[in-house]
């Protein structure tokens, strides 16, 4: 069986890298003594996977880990044991189980919901309206591994609509970002694209980015939670 858990990357540990996050989960699985499956060979490693690679500095309340078990274990017990074995800053929110051959969770993710907070107070409503009405917005995102060093994407394909509010001290962006089998885009690139196209001076380097939700889409296009309806909820 395969355990699937929704876990967090809380603000206090936001600066650990994806690799560091993965190592931490694997050690926690061992500390929790989950009956996890291992690969064969000289360097046996735990069979577990993380749904997505979160950027350094990005907070998330909706990360997912899938753990293949060598023998079955009650979902709630497993979730509680792992939660206890994790450092402060990573919590288990919910868990379910599926059979081992079930498709990887991440292949089903269709979109993510973000909140981005900036210490910025100028009125950008015109740019926001223009963005929401634009049919297309091309942006050259950095792609260090390619020959050109960048890749042109249509921001509007991934992020059709943004909601922006300002309380006088901070500006908050709320939006959904599409995830496709060939990839997605970084939340921070939305800000870069806005700066570039509408000549804004958003302090991108100060962006406090939080991923609030990750979801699947039903055949009708409705948002569906990643875990099954019968998932056990903790905390």
């Amino acid at each position: 069986m395969k355990l699937r858990m929704q876990i967090t990357k809380d603000p206090e540990i936001r600066f650990i890298s994806h690799l560091e996050y993965a190592r931490t989960i694997s050690r926690a699985i061992r500390r929790a003594k989950l009956p996890a499956a291992y690969s064969e060979g000289f360097n046996p490693h735990l069979k577990f996977s993380l749904a997505s690679a979160l950027g350094v500095g990005v907070v998330s309340y909706t990360e997912f880990v899938e753990i293949e078990l060598a023998e079955p274990m009650e979902v709630e017990l497993a979730a509680k044991a792992l939660d206890k074995a994790l450092p402060r800053g990573i919590r288990v929110l919910a868990a379910d189980a599926v059979d081992t051959h079930h498709a990887a969770l991440m292949s089903q993710a269709a979109g993510a919901n973000y909140r981005v907070t900036l210490p910025y107070s100028r009125d950008i409503s015109e740019a926001v309206t223009a963005f929401n009405e634009a049919p297309q917005l091309l942006f050259k995102k950095a792609a260090p591994k390619t020959k050109a060093g960048f890749k042109e994407i249509d921001v509007k394909f991934y992020i059709p609509h943004i909601d922006v509010t300002c309380d006088g001290a901070a500006t908050v962006f709320a939006f959904d970002c599409k995830i496709t089998p060939t990839g997605s885009m970084k939340a921070v690139d939305l800000l870069n694209a806005l700066n570039e196209h509408y000549q804004l001076d958003l302090p991108v380097e100060m962006a406090d980015i939080e991923r609030l939700n990750l979801y699947r889409l039903s055949k009708k296009g409705n948002k569906v939670p990643m875990l099954n309806n019968d998932a056990v909820k903790l905390g």
């Binding site: 600066f15 931490t24 994790l86 450092p87 380097e205 962006a207």
Partner: peptide
């Protein structure tokens, strides 16, 4: 330390703590 600083240095987790079993 602010977000922009921690985002711009190598291995920022060196400076933020919160490891398992830290007291």
């Amino acid at each position: 330390l602010t977000i922009d600083i921690l985002s711009s240095v190598q291995k920022p987790a060196r400076y933020t703590g919160g490891e398992f079993a830290s007291i």
